[in-house]
């Protein structure tokens, strides 16, 4: 499935959701040439923001990605409040909602490391390159070595 990043960003920004773009989409914003298939965000876990997130995504049929159809998954404030990280598919593609990220922590922890990027008249809060590299390193997954190498090369190119 194709993920329409533009529409997903519009939905979240339009819904006034507080979130930080991380992962492959943040890497793209910084100039990465790698193809990513899902949007990873860290959302702020306040009651108000969880409600905004639920309301914003509700019309777009969020469902557990890779799960068989027909499970009694209910997209609600309670579901988000009782969980932390959600791997979802919507009518506009794949989105991972993270309450916390390894090596980075919560929205509040990551907030000092954001950089604002202009995106079709809106502002996207993306994790800065330095922190993005740190979170990838903290994950310690061999599959991320190539990604880290590219991100560090990007940092060198911009120095």
């Amino acid at each position: 499935m194709i993920t329409n990043f533009k529409i997903l960003f519009e939905i979240l920004i339009g819904g006034e959701v507080e979130f930080i773009v991380i992962g492959g989409a943040a890497a793209t914003a910084h100039g990465s040439a790698r193809v990513t298939y899902d949007l990873d965000i860290v959302y702020r876990r306040t009651n108000e923001n969880i409600k905004l997130l639920v309301d914003a995504l509700a019309p777009h049929e969020p469902y557990l990605r890779g799960a068989p159809p027909g499970l009694p998954f209910k997209w609600s404030v309670e579901t988000i409040r009782n969980g932390l990280n959600f791997t979802l598919v919507t009518t506009h593609g794949a989105i991972d909602l993270l309450g916390e990220v390894a090596g980075g922590g919560s929205y509040e922890d990551l907030y000092p490391a954001i950089v604002r990027k202009q995106f079709f008249g809106d502002e996207l809060q993306c994790l800065n390159l330095e922190k993005l590299i740190a979170t990838k390193r903290a994950a310690g997954r061999p599959k991320d070595f190539e990604v880290i190498a590219e991100l560090e090369s990007l940092r060198e190119e911009q120095a």
Binding site: K6, T28, G31, V35, T36, F120, S153, E157
Partner: peptide, 21 residues
């Protein structure tokens, strides 16, 4: 490739990503 990407706007980078998908 990275140098070429750095010449693009953020919007263009995401458009390129979606075209690649």
């Amino acid at each position: 490739l990275l140098r070429e990407n750095l010449k693009l706007t953020v919007e263009q980078r995401f458009e390129q990503l979606m075209n690649m998908q």
